[in-house]
Amino acid sequence: MYEEPYRWIEAVENRRNYLDDQFMQGNPLIGVSFAQGILLLTFNRGTDKIYEIYDRIALGGMGHPADLEKLRYTMLDMAHVEGFQRSPADVTAARLMKNGLAPVVKQAFEEIYKAPYIIKVLLAEVGPTQERDRLFSINYDGMFEEQREFVVMAASSSIREILLKEWKPQGPSSSLKDALELSLRLWGIASVLQSAAPSSDTGEEDVKTDVLAPSSSEPTIPDDEAIASRIRETLAQETLECVLLDRETGRMETYRTLSQSELQPLIPQEFVPAKQQ
């Protein structure tokens, strides 16, 4: 029944709707490039979502854990074989994304007789200098974007446009505390917006007209109290997961999970849940 082109388009459209629904409950993931490296931040309910791929590369995922696991292995195999047979310097997030991940994800999405990957993936590569940091995000349909300063992964990809207004460039004097504070705030905004939107990513044009961005007015950033209370609630119920790709370690390997005791003093007071204050 899918032989006719319009049937196929219809099937792909159904797939989009189905997949978009899958991400509504997901936790946004934020990646921020700052002086010391790249900070990746999300919350989890037990299963980690940020993983080490190679010396300078980390992966963050949203969606089905089994699909993420499969793609994580694809990335690991590619990176390590390349790093072994050529050199660690030849393993880049750009190549992993463009040659490895994107074609696989796109193909799975368009083969309508098979199950698609229910995932959105973020790849971060820390460079020797901040200018050479690279952040990639890929949607379930294989569309990917390259960013330099920050990346957000959320149920709707239009959230990035809104977060851009809140973005503060992290200059050479930016500290881990600054980066964490900003990342938490961006996460809070993304999370509030995501739960306010009934649907998203239903095509290029629709995105602009859904609740996130009503055609009549500019998209609005939730007020500070709404953001803070969302972060407080989540901090109380879920685990804050932060990974630092640290360009200043002096070692080949840059990936480090920040421990809860390390994170506690860095969280701004207004975000700390009441009982912990």
């Binding site: 980690d48 993983y51 190679y54 690991l76 390590h80 790093g83 072994f84 390997e253």
Partner: peptide
């Protein structure tokens, strides 16, 4: 040595 280095890294990263 190179095989070992990559094997240990690969194991740690894949098996967590």
């Amino acid at each position: 040595a190179r095989v070992l280095e990559h094997s240990f890294k690969y194991y740690r990263r894949s098996q967590l």
